[in-house]
Design a protein around this nucleic acid. Sequence first.
DNA 1: TCCGCCAATGTAAACGTTTCAAACATTCAT
DNA 2: ATGAATGTTTGAAACGTTTACATTGGCGGA
Lengths: 355, 355
Amino acid sequence: MTPEPSRPSLPLQPSPPSKPTMRDVARKAGVSIATVSRVINFPGDVPAKTAEIVNTAMRYLNYRPNINGRRLKMTQTRTVGVLVPTLANPVFATSVQGIEQEANAEGLTVLLTSSSYDPDREMGAVSALLNNRVDGLILTLADADNNPVVDLLLAEKIPFVLLFNQPARSDIAAISVDNAQSAFDITNAMIAKGHRSLAMVAGRFESSDRSRQRYDGFCRALRDAGIKTPHLVQVGFGETDLKAYLRDLLCGLDAVTGLVCSTDMLAIAAIDACRSYGLSVPDDVSVGGIDGISVGGLITPKLCSAVQPTQEMGRQALAFLRGLIKGQANPQSLLLPHHLSDGESIGSFRRRSST
Amino acid sequence: MTPEPSRPSLPLQPSPPSKPTMRDVARKAGVSIATVSRVINFPGDVPAKTAEIVNTAMRYLNYRPNINGRRLKMTQTRTVGVLVPTLANPVFATSVQGIEQEANAEGLTVLLTSSSYDPDREMGAVSALLNNRVDGLILTLADADNNPVVDLLLAEKIPFVLLFNQPARSDIAAISVDNAQSAFDITNAMIAKGHRSLAMVAGRFESSDRSRQRYDGFCRALRDAGIKTPHLVQVGFGETDLKAYLRDLLCGLDAVTGLVCSTDMLAIAAIDACRSYGLSVPDDVSVGGIDGISVGGLITPKLCSAVQPTQEMGRQALAFLRGLIKGQANPQSLLLPHHLSDGESIGSFRRRSST
DNA sequence: TCCGCCAATGTAAACGTTTCAAACATTCAT
DNA sequence: ATGAATGTTTGAAACGTTTACATTGGCGGA
């Protein structure tokens, strides 16, 4: 039998000086691991003197608690998952800011993902969040009704709050403004200025139930005013060049004088398209948006929009979710008030000067 | 010895039907827990027949792997942390999109936090990320030089990539454009149009080294052109109303005809301020930005800006970080090319019509 | 002196994974 | 039939916490 090569039987020391653990701190401080845990989690329960020793040891070793160990042990992870369609639209970025603000105040961790407006990616994203054992979720879905994600969450009894979605069922938590009413109001503002030939520029219905609900509000306003034909153009999300989409509406014989856009981002793009056709906003065409993103107030013409309290909605969504997680609240829809901003992008109707 | 009260010695069943674990799947499938693990992680290593049985069991039980268990065991967590100043500025939101895109493609999880431009919150945010045992970090810091976060990361040998920061040290990984040169170029564009009286509108230096670097580029352009006084206004981040900041510059006797802004968001706000003073851009005042956010191309006047490939920078930052994590790459700075957009917000100098 | 009590601390068993070494089963050449 | 070689599967020990329960020691009162 050949002798073993010179490899020693016990490793000399774990080669990489790997991260210090609670055990290391305990050893250093000459206390038990349980005491260290108490110093971290229940500082009041341990005499100041001991705490001091332990804290010194922690500082000396550069100890950081491994959250994964904790999360594994604890039933609650103090983590919430967030799914938004995209961060590119400031309306969602702002709502996330509200969520994070409130989460920070509560010491909660936020796991953020986005679906890129693709309904098929929602399930994957939520799955990933659930694998992280989040305590609850805040979601902005393409379509809140008949959504497999909603069904899953309901079945697994995972607390969740929809944000911006306005689902048909009233027994699921949702924070939004009244989408139809928002569109109704901004449309009426145009009608009040004498416009009769209006079109809605909307995000694709299959990527956004808000878009559909807003279209409904638009239609209702037209109907109430006795206007027949509700023009509609659906635009893919992320599109910023609307020239091709709007050519017929803006340059045709029966050209439209008012564009109601389902989001402010679309409204800004629509104004740009008008301009590229040599049309002035609001002299030739009036444009209204919905959302109330802050940049709308800075551009020329100042965008007239149905403003929702975006950041506050994010905050409330998190606050509400906390209630659900604690079992203190029952799922319910909350409609927050919106208001029309006094923009310049909607003007009085005047017959279009020949182009 | 009194007999035990009626409490049964074994709990009948764990009251809440808690989430199924690998053990449950193993039991159901009649295999060992190790086999289940292999089906999940190395599907190739297990015969199709066994895999099928296990997969069926997983579906039947609605099994989801608990990522926290995995993360605890594994040395790598396949998670990266990201810190940005804010999501409210589309330039960062867009870079995060680039990061997420690349991360998704690699199956990495992204942990996102923001500092609200507050240097004091950077350490806390990074600490939280490190407690999560991220494999590496992508950071946009207020000031990359002499930054305690950088020192910490270097000391603990945690891979990280700075994004948008352009640190003095060349041995730390950073992906950015040449900030000074960007400002230099956009300033020169104004000088080429005949402007001699220029001011920079910059984000507060203490919240942004980019701001300072861009100011340097601005000054250099003025110096090269033999212009003496580089006006400077520092603006707090998040401010959108610049009227008060710009009154003296715009309305004084020695009024300025060009505003170079350290970010596009500031440029948009500056244009708004000009307008509120009855000044036309670009007829009375030229305004240039830096960043190249997409909304800049949609507004009137189209914003002239030094455009950086924001989303691509995010992607590259993640790709680079992966290299660092694998130990395949050495930290180094990468400067990506920028270009001037053909905006309308910069016009030829003409003597200001009397206000 | 002894007892009981309380505060302070310690012990050890989870939590749900991954993974190494070892066991087992099968095939095939001898 | 035997053994080697190969292909599957398993047992059990981590990973770093939290926490129910046990232990210790000190102190006041009898």
